[in-house]
Amino acid sequence: MAHYAMLIDLNTCTGCNACMAACAVENQTPFWSDKWRTKVHDITKGKTDADTARIFFPRLCNHCDNPPCVTVCPTGATYKMDNGIVDVDDDMCMGCQACTLACPYDERYALDYDDNTEKKAVFGEETLKKTRPGVDKCNFCRDRVEDNRLPACVETCVGNARQFADLDNPNDPVTQLINSGIAEPLMAHLGTKPNVYYIPVKKQTIHYERDMFNGQNSEGGLHPVGGENGTTFERKQAAESGQTEPAHEQAMFDVNSPFANSSDAQMTDLLKVEA
């Protein structure tokens, strides 16, 4: 039996939103009401120019192995399949929305009568997959997956950020990536056993004359940057202390540059709670 999961590499997601579009079209979601099965957030990190970062964060149902949404559903409309996918039955769901509160990841939304009626006009009544109002959510494009295809968001991801895995298949390269521990799921401490894993973003640097730059004031003659106005660049001190390495080699690498350090990326704190 299969056990589907997703791996998301935050280092190559460029925030292009192709997955949002693909999902909305494939799954006929009420995008005009700003309701989506998956979203890509454009998140700003850091408070100053020096530590600002921009992270694109795709999110979707985590198809938990211990899904609180399934537990609270009183009709059985929401259920976990043997292949790991958590789906919602169009006919059974009466839309009490208990599941939307139970989901710790805020991945479910209400598709109401207005949305449901509008769907007919927007997508064409005859082609609708779901015809009733109720709670909707990502189902890993279950009908595509059962047809041996990939979920719409995975198939189209231009950055190869979204990758699909069958955790029961040890030869699946994405499964191997997940098992390597390079990726983390969200809020695992809640005990939901989520199946979407994120590879965190490598730390970035900005190169500019932080806070010290003031245009140098001079009209003619160019002063080397870092002259009287100083620089935070530590290497300069090393140079002043008279080291013997050839001048231009010494100037080559910024030892503080993350690239110089290692090929193992230093991880972001995005997924951890911050003080």
């Binding site: 009709t75 059985g76 409309a77 059974m92 009466m94 839309g95 009733r132 109720g134």
Partner: peptide, 16 residues
């Protein structure tokens, strides 16, 4: 959200 489906909840004690 879907009033016509409300009767399903009555089967809940058996299914869920």
């Amino acid at each position: 959200l879907d009033h016509l489906a409300v009767w399903h909840v009555l089967l809940g004690v058996f299914n869920k």
